[in-house]
Design a binder for these strands. Sequence first.
DNA 1: AGTTCAATCTCGACA
DNA 2: TGTCGAGGTTGAACT
Lengths: 231, 231
Amino acid sequence: MRLVIARCSVDYAGRLSAHLPLATRLLMIKADGSLLVHSDGGSYKPLNWMSPPCTLTISEPSDEQREAGVSALWTVRHAKTDDLLVVSLYEVLHDSAHELGVDPGLQKDGVEAHLQKLLAEQIHLLGDGHRLVRREYMTAIGPVDILATDAAGRSVAVELKRRGDIDGVEQLTRYLELMNRDPRLAPVAGVFAAQEIKPQARTLAEDRGIRCVVLDYDAMRGIDDGIARLF
Amino acid sequence: MRLVIARCSVDYAGRLSAHLPLATRLLMIKADGSLLVHSDGGSYKPLNWMSPPCTLTISEPSDEQREAGVSALWTVRHAKTDDLLVVSLYEVLHDSAHELGVDPGLQKDGVEAHLQKLLAEQIHLLGDGHRLVRREYMTAIGPVDILATDAAGRSVAVELKRRGDIDGVEQLTRYLELMNRDPRLAPVAGVFAAQEIKPQARTLAEDRGIRCVVLDYDAMRGIDDGIARLF
DNA sequence: AGTTCAATCTCGACA
DNA sequence: TGTCGAGGTTGAACT
């Protein structure tokens, strides 16, 4: 990885055209040839960049450019899409190279999967008499998070989210529409379960006869840990 | 901006939990206190990060950690969400600080708004006899991209996307439901227009009687440029 | 400040 | 390999 701090301007042409006026920025060249242009603020997204696979060419500026103060030109071209990024360097304030090696990568610890497991184990949270049929019940348009039955033996489809918004309700609605056409399942009631349910989502859900259940993740985990400690 | 190359491990706890095993990486501390952890490959997204507003605290490792080889601990806590990022530094290979100043920011030339403008100008692409009523036609639940009339004078609501997926169909469906209750507009036909329409989205749309139109952006722009050249 | 919607989205899973 | 769906999405425009 090569790190360069420089006064530069940047032009990009690809899906859109974009320009960065002259300013001091960090230029990061990764081992795969990709380039990131970062400012000293904002989020993790660079001001501009070129994704791999791409190639960086360093060239001399034209006389006109040199007269304007440009000391070098970096041209980065994408290997497949022909997207083009041109960095005009005016002054280099820092330049260093480093060997980092291959990264072992991020290990993600899913929480939604855990939430599903916990709710399956504590299916009574849906109401007295509920029984688990199965997790990830497959339908033609995808898996329903949890299929259960209520005290009267009727089917209950559960859509599970960490943060319940309108999309989750739409998703569950599509599942319910489909499942209610299956005579072996119909009638199927819907439950929208989440740690937190947005007011709009609740309104939409209840308008469609879908019950909303707010889950307390910490409490569920606490009980689960308690069970785990028993064995 | 401070740039540190170090052998380190990283732990994150927030929306999800994640861990980065010991390896050599770039740590970028921006002026607003945010932290980025980059490897020497991949795209512009860091392996891990903390967005502003947040605060970085540098502390001494515990005896146990020191014995394991940790020389320093960086703890970054988000100001609002309490998300936590902990970097355990084992060996610092490079450390430098730089003054970058405020960035003037990126100047973009948009594409999406342009597509709407082009379709409004070339409304015949919807079919012979179509006429534009207006762009961004307001309804109670938001603006419909384009409202037009067909050859028979019936209302046509157009939802425009660069890539047409299932969400866009749901959105248009909600608009149509609402507009068809308005006696001045009803009956309103729906058109789902995009540069590219996903098979699932097309199926759902057609099942609901919504017509799909695939747009050729380059051709539309070409015609537009041609018109521009005439004047 | 909250909401909605696009993105040079990125990224992983799955057919 | 393409397609599809989710993201610690991010970011911008608008209410």
